[in-house]
Design a protein around this nucleic acid. Structure first.
Length: 310
DNA sequence: TAGCAGGAAAATC
DNA sequence: GATTTTCCTGCT
């Protein structure tokens, strides 16, 4: 179906889709193609209008609005996180970037593959998994593959999954898929609980048993932020850690900062991650996750600018 | 709790 | 081309 979505609040499709939240969108020509919501949708932004073509009626304007969180008053959010110069600059530069609300299972599975990988690599792994285990769907004469169900990924052997180029992540994905397929992960509870409890539930700290192998604090924060509506979640990856060390040194423990400067790496103990994450949430407030996303874009673009000029 | 390995592709030299 | 790095977690 073909439709347009009028934009009544600031939105940048481009910034949102290149900000590393999602792995199943690709730009061809002027259009962004996404395999999302059980189908395929392509869209193009023209000023304050989003032109869309989708494979089914289910992928209509209400779906788009929910996925891109178009009802969120972004100006209010951005005003609330603009606490200082560095974040204000990032907000001005990437104005219109929004957090998406993606499928919870897909988000969990995708980020379980994200350890020790960069974004192009993650995209490739996810593509391989979808190509092999995802259902086919036709759109404008091309065949796309949906993200596989938990059952579809719980079934194959670890070595079969390894064939998708997952490496040591293959058993993680299988275990996570099996947990979700069994119904061990109560996504609705995670979504409805406050951040701290939701995080504990996802990490299975309550039962004391690690069910979701491959899901640590960083991945949990990504899932909470990108799919469970926890806007205060602040995933800390290596880039964000560097940005924080430089722009917000007072929020980071001296010892962690020293290690970061010396090694350029962030091997954070769970307790260190928790502490840093808590101070960032306290500093940026209830929309800390938006601050994280804007800072991430800023530090990444800085990096690519350096590459071009050196 | 601290240290370390992990598979493979991208980034960097 | 070789080497280093990579949106980290689990195990010892």
């Amino acid at each position: 179906m073909e439709f347009v979505v009028p934009l009544t609040s600031p939105f940048s499709l481009e910034y949102t889709l290149v900000s590393g939240q999602t792995f199943r969108w690709a730009k061809r020509g002027d259009w962004w193609y996404g395999v999302v919501g059980g189908g395929v949708v392509k869209m193009m932004q023209e000023g304050d209008v989003l032109k869309c073509v989708s494979s089914s009626d289910a992928l209509g304007a209400p779906w788009v609005s929910e996925y891109f969180q178009l009802d969120v008053d972004l100006e209010h959010v951005l005003a609330s996180i603009s606490k200082d110069e560095p974040i204000t600059r990032a907000v001005e530069r990437f104005y219109g970037l929004r957090l998406v609300r993606q499928d919870r299972w897909e988000c969990l599975a995708s980020f379980a593959l994200a350890t020790n990988a960069n974004i192009p690599r993650i995209v490739k792994m996810v593509d391989n998994v979808c190509a092999r285990y995802g259902g086919a769907i036709e759109f404008e004469g091309d065949v796309y593959r949906r993200f596989p169900s938990p059952q579809a990924l719980a079934g194959p052997t670890v070595s079969a999954l390894r064939g998708c180029g997952l490496g040591y992540r293959a058993p993680f994905l299988k275990r996570v898929a099996a947990s979700v397929a069994r119904g061990d992960v109560d996504f609705d509870a995670v979504s409805s609980l406050p951040y701290e409890e939701a995080r504990r539930l996802l990490l299975r700290e309550l039962s004391g048993e690690k069910v979701l192998l491959g899901v640590g604090p960083k991945v949990a924060d990504c899932v909470l932020l990108y799919s469970c509506g926890k806007d205060e979640a602040f995933p800390i990856d290596v880039w964000i850690a560097r940005a924080v060390a430089r722009s917000y040194p007072w929020l980071m423990d001296r010892s962690l900062r020293a290690r970061l400067e010396r090694d350029g790496k962030v091997k954070m103990a769970a307790s260190e991650y928790a502490k840093l994450s808590a101070s960032l949430r306290e500093y940026f407030g209830e929309y800390a996750g938006y601050a994280q996303q804007y800072l991430y874009m800023a530090v990444r673009s800085e990096k690519s600018a350096t590459i071009r000029t050196s």
